[in-house]
């Protein structure tokens, strides 16, 4: 039991120190690194409580995906464009401080509220073992009691994904390469006449190559026109 306690305090201490680091660090990338550290320690606390599944999900989703994307953005931002963390506007500093104070009070009240401390919920170790483990317990809860919330959240996320795609959609999507109507010859009078291209062969002048089947064996879904004479070209 004391080992558990020591490990818990280690995790908690690092977690709080990292959280402080997030706020104090001047470089936003450093802040993000501290946040990763913080999330990791929270995952550790989850493991201490026997919620391994939650811990792994915390690492996969928050550290593995969301923070990576956050870093992605931070790396692209020019350091000069970033707000200086310590020199916010006076209003920002006052309001920020006030909000922080309110949050601290809320948490303090929650902790000091005697009714919460020491009361065990329904998720006792026995109850979890009865359904087969913490993974199964979370699954059962999600897909029974909280099904509606779960579905609503997935809907919101889908909307978010579609919105992001619409916003980021490039103007031109995969321009198709078209095959030219024919080849031209620099040695032939018609060949250098660019106007005639694409409008079919002029009257009375048949393309020299057409009908001769002067094509190389198809390779990779393409054929090459094979010419034997510098005046040859294919028509439209």
């Amino acid at each position: 039991m004391p080992w558990d306690l020591i490990i818990f305090y280690m995790l908690a201490a690092v977690c709080i120190a990292a959280a402080l680091g997030v706020v104090v660090a001047t470089n936003p990338v450093h802040s993000a690194i501290f946040l990763v550290l913080c999330f990791f320690n929270v995952a550790g606390v989850f493991v201490m409580m026997g919620a391994e599944f939650l811990a792994v999900i915390q690492v996969i989703v928050y550290t593995g995906a969301i923070l990576v994307l956050l870093l992605f953005v931070l790396m692209l931002v020019n350091p000069d464009d970033l707000p200086e963390f310590h020199q916010g506007k006076p209003v920002q500093r006052v309001v920020g401080g006030l909000l922080g104070l309110i949050l601290l009070l809320e948490i303090a009240i929650a902790i000091l509220n005697r009714e919460v401390v020491g009361v065990t919920g329904t998720a006792t170790p026995e109850a979890i073992a009865a359904v087969g483990g913490n993974t199964q317990a979370i699954g059962r809860l999600l897909f029974s009691d909280y099904l509606l919330a779960f579905e609503v959240v997935s809907l919101v996320l889908t909307v978010g994904v579609i919105g992001a795609i619409v916003l980021a959609l490039p103007e031109r999507l995969g321009e198709k390469v078209v095959q030219r109507k024919g080849t031209i010859s620099l040695g032939h009078a018609r060949g250098v006449d660019m106007e005639a291209l694409g409008e079919g062969t002029p009257e009375g002048e048949a393309p020299i190559l057409s009908g001769r089947g002067g094509f190389a064996k198809a390779s990779g879904g393409r054929k090459l026109v094979m010419t034997n004479d510098p005046d040859e070209y294919t028509g439209a």
């Binding site: 990338v29 690194i33 990763v36 990791f40 391994e52 599944f53 792994v56 999900i57 690492v59 996969i60 550290t63 593995g64 995906a65 990576v68 870093l71 992605f72 790396m75 483990g133 913490n134 993974t135």
Partner: peptide
């Protein structure tokens, strides 16, 4: 008991080494 997910979680953290090193 979540061994398979553990591998995934750890490998997803590994990318930090690449991103941070690059940055």
């Amino acid at each position: 008991n979540i061994g398979a997910l553990f591998v995934l979680a750890i490998s997803s953290v590994g990318v930090y080494g690449i991103i941070l090193g690059a940055w």
